[in-house]
Nucleic acid binder design. Structure first.
Lengths: 367, 367
DNA sequence: GTATGGAGTGAAAAGGTTTTCAAGATCGAT
DNA sequence: ATCGATCTTGAAAACCTTTTCACTCCATAC
C-alpha cells in the first residue's frame, strides 16, 4: 500500500499527499484534512527507502562503539539513540569489539546505508576508513581523537580538569603518595588519561614516580592485578586514582583481598561514574563524565554538519566533575565501620609521607 | 556514483552488474572479472535504499529492548548485532525505557524502515502494536511472552529448570527456609520467575510462606530494600534466591549492612549471570542464562520466518544452568574469613528448621 | 476589461537498484 | 546446413517517493 492509494482515496494527486505528509503550507487545510483522513484510514506508513532514494537523505545515523559490554557504553548508546529518535533519526549500531575487520565492516555498512552522520566512539580507527567516509562527505563526530576538520567534529573531554579535581581532592585530604592505575597504553584514551595525571601532579609540584603507575586493562580483573602489584611496593601509595571505574572496582577488590580497608588504609578514586559506581563497597568517589551529554553533543555536531552543509567541524568540550562518595578519606586514619565490625589492623607496612604539609596553593584538609 | 558508471566502465549493462554483485552464476567468469575490476576501481558501494526499494527486502532487523542500561541487555545487544552482521543484516535498535509512547514510536520506525524482522526483548508491549506489525507480515521473535503463531516465534527460557537447580542446590546444602526476592510484579518476566520458584518449592514438598517473598525492582536498590525487609522477620530465611543478579547484588549489600556475612549467615543465589556476577563480593552463585545464545536463536527464528515464507513461528527453549561461586554455603556454619577478620556473630535471631533432614528425593548435603 | 500575482494542485522526471522477458550467440546433434 | 537447446546479455518495467515545473483559478490592481 503506497502513497498512490492514499491519493486515490483522498481524490488528489500523489504530489499533494507527499506535501501533506511534510506539512507543506501550500496545501489547503481542507485538502490536508482529507488526505490525513485517508492516511489514517489506510494505516499508511511511508516507505523510508523510497523516501531516502528520492530525497538523498536517509535519516539514519550510525554509532560505532568499541565494546557495548563495557558499562561506559550502554548509557551512551541509550542517550544517542534517544537523542536521535527525538530528532527523527534512526540509529544503526555497531560494536567492533576492537577488531579491525569488524570495524571495516561496520564502516562499509554505514556507507551503504548512506547514513547522514556517524558517531565514532572508539579511538582505534584506521585512517583509511575515516578517509573513505570523508570522501563521501559523511559527517563524523569523534570522541577525543583529533582536531576537527571538514565535516569532522570532535568531543574533547576535559580529562585534565577532572583529574585535577580528583588529585586536588586527594591532596586536600592529606595524601602525597598517589598511585595511578592506567588503562592499556594501546588505547589512546588510556594514554590521554595517564598523561593528564602526570601533568597534573607536576602542576602541584609533585614529581612523577614511575613505580606508582601500574597498567591495567580497563576491566575489573586488570584493576585488581594492577592494584596488587602496587601494594607489593615497599612504600605503597596512600591513595590511587584509576583510569576508569572498572579498574577502580578491581582495585577495591585487590585492596580488600590484602586485608586492607578502603578508605581507611587506602583511598580510591575512579573515573567515568558508571551507574555501578554508586553501588560499590564502599561507594566510589569518582570523576563524572556524563554519557548522556556526550550523546547529546554528538548529535548536535552531526546535525550541524549535515543540515546546513556547514563545512567546518566543531570542537565541543565535555566537562567533568568530581563525585565524592565514600572511597576517599584522609590517609592513615582508622575508624570503626558503622556495622560494628571489628577492624583488622592494617598489616604493618612501611609508610612514608605522613607529615600533613599544606597543599601547594590549596586550602587545608577539611578534617 | 551508481551502478551505471560501473556498467559503462566495464562495458556491460546495469543488469549484468547487478547480477555480478549477487554472484549470479549466469554471468560468464570473464565478464564478472571485468565488472569486479570496475567496482574496485570506482570504489562503488551499492545503494541499499534503491536496493531495498527494488527487492522489497531491507536487510535490516530491529531490536527493541526495555532498557539497554540494565546489564542484562548489552551482552544481548552485542550478540544480536554480531549475529545479524554475520548474516548480512544491519541492526536498528530502540531502547524503550518502559515508556509506552517510546515503544509505539519504535514500532512505527521499524515498520517505516521495513525491517525484515524484529526481536522484541521487552515483555511490556501493547497488543495493538504487535498486531500492527503482524498485519504487515513482519516476522517477530519474543522473549518469553506468548505461544508462537503466524510468523511469531518465542524464545522460552527454562526458568523452571534454572530455579529448580538453584533450589536443589540450596536444599542440598541444608537450607529449608528459602526466601525469594522478586522483581516488580508489573513485569511479566518477574512474575514468571516468581511463579517458577513457588512451583518448584512445592515440588520439593515445601509449603509457600508468603512472608518469605519480598518484592524488589530488578535493580540494586530494590534488592537491598527487599532484603532488609526480609531480615526484619522473626525468623528470616537462611538463603535467598533473587529474581535477577542486580537484585542479588542489592541483597548482598543489605546483608552486609546488617553486619551479617555471605555465605556464612545467609546464602544468596542470583539469576542471569551478568558479567558483573563474577566480581561481586563474594562472587555470586547464580543461574546462568546465556545472552549470546538468546541473541543467536532470536536471529535463527527471524531468518527462518523470512527466508522461506515459512508461516509458522517456532518455539525454542533456552537452557539455564547453575554457576556455583562463593555466595552459597551450608546454613549456620561459621567459618573464618580468609582475610583473618574477626567475624561478627549474627545478632541473636531466632532460627528454625535447623534439622538437617535429607532432601525429599535428593542426595545428602555434600558436607 | 486586461494585466499581475499568488494560491493550490497535478504531471512527470529523477533517484539506483532488481528482475522479467526477450534476443543474440554458440554449440551439439541431426 | 538446419534445428534446438543452452548460455550470456541487454532493455525496460517496477519499486515508492520527492521535487520541479507548469497550469488553472481567483482576486486584486490598474
Amino acid at each position: 500500500m503506497s502513497i498512490h492509494e492514499v491519493a486515490k482515496l483522498a481524490n488528489v494527486s500523489i504530489a499533494t499527499v507527499s506535501r501533506t505528509l511534510h506539512n507543506n503550507p501550500r496545501v489547503s487545510p481542507e485538502t490536508a484534512a482529507r488526505v490525513w483522513q485517508a492516511i489514517r484510514e489506510l494505516k499508511y506508513y511511508p516507505n523510508t527507502h523510497a523516501r531516502s532514494l528520492a530525497s538523498g537523505r536517509s535519516h539514519i545515523v550510525g554509532l560505532i562503539v568499541s565494546d557495548i559490554t563495557n558499562p561506559f557504553f550502554p548509557e551512551m548508546v541509550r542517550g544517542f539513540e534517544e537523542s536521535a529518535s527525538r530528532r527523527g533519526y534512526d540509529t544503526i549500531i555497531a560494536s567492533t569489539n576492537y577488531d579491525p575487520s569488524r570495524t571495516a565492516t561496520a564502516v562499509r555498512r554505514m556507507i551503504e546505508r548512506k547514513v547522514d552522520g556517524v558517531g565514532i566512539m572508539t579511538s582505534e580507527m584506521d585512517q583509511n576508513l575515516i578517509d573513505e567516509m570523508a570522501n563521501r562527505d559523511v559527517p563524523m563526530v569523534f570522541l577525543d581523537v583529533a582536531a576537527p576538520s571538514r565535516r569532522i567534529s570532535n568531543l574533547r573531554i576535559d580529562y585534565v580538569g577532572g583529574i585535577n579535581l580528583a588529585v586536588r581532592h586527594l591532596l586536600e585530604l592529606g595524601h602525597r603518595r598517589i598511585g595511578f592505575l592506567s588503562g592499556p597504553f594501546e588505547l589512546k584514551s588510556a594514554r590521554t588519561r595517564h598523561d593528564a595525571f602526570i601533568e597534573c601532579l607536576g602542576g602541584f609540584g609533585i614529581f612523577e614516580d614511575a613505580r606508582l603507575v601500574e597498567q591495567g586493562n580497563h576491566r575489573i580483573d586488570g584493576g585488581l592485578a594492577a592494584m596488587q602489584r602496587l601494594l607489593q611496593l615497599d612504600s605503597p601509595p596512600t591513595a590511587v586514582l584509576a583510569s576508569n571505574d572498572l579498574t577502580a572496582i578491581g582495585a577495591l577488590r585487590g585492596i580488600r583481598n590484602m586485608g586492607l580497608q578502603v578508605p581507611d588504609d587506602i583511598s580510591v578514586v575512579g573515573f567515568d561514574d558508571i551507574d555501578l559506581a554508586e553501588f560499590t563497597e564502599p561507594p566510589l568517589t569518582t570523576v563524572r563524565l556524563s554519557r548522556a551529554e556526550i550523546a547529546e553533543r554528538a548529535l548536535d555536531c552531526l546535525l550541524l554538519n549535515m543540515d546546513f552543509g556547514r563545512e567546518g567541524g566543531s570542537e565541543v568540550v565535555i566537562g567533568t566533575n568530581l563525585i565524592v562518595r565514600k572511597s576517599t578519606a584522609p590517609p592513615r586514619r582508622k575508624r570503626r565501620a558503622e556495622t560494628g565490625q571489628t577492624i583488622t589492623p592494617a598489616k604493618g607496612r612501611a609508610r612514608r609521607e605522613r607529615a600533613p604539609e599544606s597543599i601547594p596553593g590549596g586550602r587545608p584538609a577539611p578534617r
